[in-house]
């Protein structure tokens, strides 16, 4: 692959901590190889900032191969940047032109308060899972894995929902800051499997209640979440959640 070096301006959100007010700052980064990943470009910039005695930009990242879900930058108006089905860490500088200005913001949602700079607190997602995003089976109770055949299409659909990496791009993209894509991916993953059946009603009811409590908005089916999801989780899952919820609430005993 041909590579070249480019110069860029970066307009980055800086915020000292969750209590302080933040603002944009502009930095020049020069001689960026188009083979670099977006985060490697940040590494280069941070090294320069440290050398100059300035505070480097804080951001979440870990695996840098698109699976841990830690990275979370809102780049030029799109979560994870311009590429389709992609995470920030897998975005490469080939996506940008020489001389371009790139605006980088943190995920914005009341439920995701900024910790510092581009790093936000996504523990609300963990609490949503705590509300019922599991199958209640203790270790050692399991029967043979093949004792319950599962239709391949169902297993595949369940897997497609379970691919969610919990990055929160769906919330960041949604005009309502709704977590419905995240939530519905988990509900679908478990509802599509026979193992998840006994708890399906309580699961969806409790998880929705927790999502509301965390301060996420309601879903208006705009599809922005699906369009930005790095794992291409379908909004069909949201419709499935709605059905689960409808059945659960109308068939409730009390």
């Amino acid at each position: 692959m041909e590579h070249q070096n480019i110069n860029l301006s970066l307009k980055v959100w800086r915020q000292k901590n969750s209590n302080s007010k933040g603002a944009f700052e502009t930095y020049k980064v020069n001689n960026i190889s188009t083979e670099m990943s977006f985060l490697e470009m940040f590494d280069v910039m941070n090294e320069e900032l440290i050398t100059e005695g300035k505070d480097p930009v804080t951001f979440d990242h870990d695996c840098r191969e698109g699976i841990c879900g830690a990275c979370s930058m809102y780049i030029n108006g799109k979560p994870h940047g311009p590429w389709e089905a992609n995470t920030t860490c897998q975005l490469h500088m080939r996506a940008f032109k020489d001389g371009e200005t790139i605006v980088v913001e943190p995920w914005r949602a009341n439920a995701f308060p900024v910790i510092k700079d581009l790093m936000v607190d996504r523990s609300a997602f963990d609490r949503i899972i705590q509300a019922g995003g599991y199958i209640s089976v203790n270790t050692g109770n399991a029967v043979d894995g093949n004792s319950m055949p599962i239709e391949k299409d169902k297993a595949d659909a369940s897997f497609a929902a379970a691919m969610c990496i919990g990055c929160g791009a769906c919330v960041a993209a949604c005009k309502n800051s709704s977590a419905m894509l995240f939530l519905s991916a988990k509900v679908s993953h478990l509802a599509l499997l026979p193992q998840g059946d006994p708890e399906r009603s309580t699961r969806v009811i409790n998880m929705v209640a927790q999502m509301d409590k965390e301060g996420f908005g309601a879903c208006t089916n705009t599809g922005a979440c699906e369009a930005t999801c790095p794992k291409e989780i379908s909004i069909t899952n949201i419709a499935r959640l709605n059905q689960e919820y409808l059945l659960a609430s109308f068939t409730a005993d009390k």
Binding site: K11, F24, Y74, N76, G77, K78, P79, V103, E105, R108, A109, N110, A111, A173, K175, N176, S177, S178, G215, F216, G217, A218, T220, N221, T222, G223, A224, C225, E226, A227, T228
Partner: peptide, 26 residues
């Protein structure tokens, strides 16, 4: 209520890349 869920907005809007304008303007 949905509008109140994002106290600080974005400098650059996602716009029509991910959704139709009318779906966001109900």
């Amino acid at each position: 209520s949905n509008r109140s869920k994002r106290a600080t907005g974005y400098a650059v809007a996602y716009g029509n890349g991910g959704s139709k304008w009318y779906s966001r303007s109900m």
